[in-house]
Computed example of a mutant assay.
Amino acid sequence: MPRKVRKQIYLDPHHAQLLKQLARDLGVSEAALIRQAVDQQAAHLTPLRRDPAAWQQERAFIERLIQDGTVPGRRTWKRDDLHER
């Protein structure tokens, strides 16, 4: 079994009671239930993590657009046309 790291947490009394009941109902230890909850949260939140490299690429792209300046010619649409679509 992989080495475990000891963590101490504080729970409100109702969370402690709920944890104990869930662990009993599921037939797992309270620690196993907490590990499962952490895994589920990590899986759920992974898409929300920011990728600094992606932001740097986007920033470089924006800076290139700024350096290129305005596009020659005139636009062929009016702002109000966009709202009518």
Rank of each mutant, 00 (worst) to 15 (best):
I34R: 11
I66G: 06
R35E: 10
E58N: 00
Q8T: 15
Q36K: 14
A53P: 06
E84M: 09
I66V: 15
R59N: 05
D80G: 09
T76Y: 05
I34F: 03
R49G: 02
R6W: 02
D81E: 15
P52H: 08
G69S: 10
T46K: 14
L45A: 04
G73W: 05
D39M: 13
D68R: 15
A32S: 14
L48T: 10
A32L: 07
H44K: 11
A60M: 09
R49W: 00
A23L: 08
Q56I: 12
L48M: 10
D68P: 00
K4P: 13
L45V: 05
P2N: 07
D25S: 11
M1C: 10
Q67T: 06
M1K: 14
I34E: 04
T76V: 11
A31N: 13
Q8D: 13
K78L: 12
Q40T: 11
V5H: 13
P47M: 05
A53S: 14
A60F: 07
I9A: 09
L82M: 13
I34A: 09
Q41E: 01
H44V: 11
L65N: 01
T46N: 08
L48R: 11
H14P: 04
V28K: 10
V38Y: 02
R85A: 10
R85C: 08
P52L: 10
R79P: 00
L19M: 07
P2E: 05
G27E: 02
L11T: 08
Q40P: 00
M1W: 05
L45Y: 02
A60Q: 14
P13Y: 01
R49D: 02
D25K: 08
R3Y: 03
K7V: 12
H44R: 15
A43D: 07
L22S: 06
H15K: 14
V38M: 11
D51E: 05
A37I: 12
P72F: 06
Q17H: 02
P13N: 07
H44Q: 12
A23I: 13
Q40Y: 12
L19P: 03
A23P: 05
E84I: 13
V28M: 07
L26F: 04
G69R: 10
T46V: 08
A53H: 09
E58W: 00
E63S: 04
I9G: 04
R85H: 06
D51C: 07
A32I: 06
E30F: 01
D12I: 12
D51M: 01
I62P: 00
A43C: 05
R79N: 03
I34N: 02
W55Y: 15
A53F: 04
L22K: 11
L48H: 05
L22T: 09
R64Y: 03
V5P: 00
D12M: 12
P52D: 01
K20V: 05
D80L: 13
I34V: 15
L19K: 08
Q40L: 09
R49N: 06
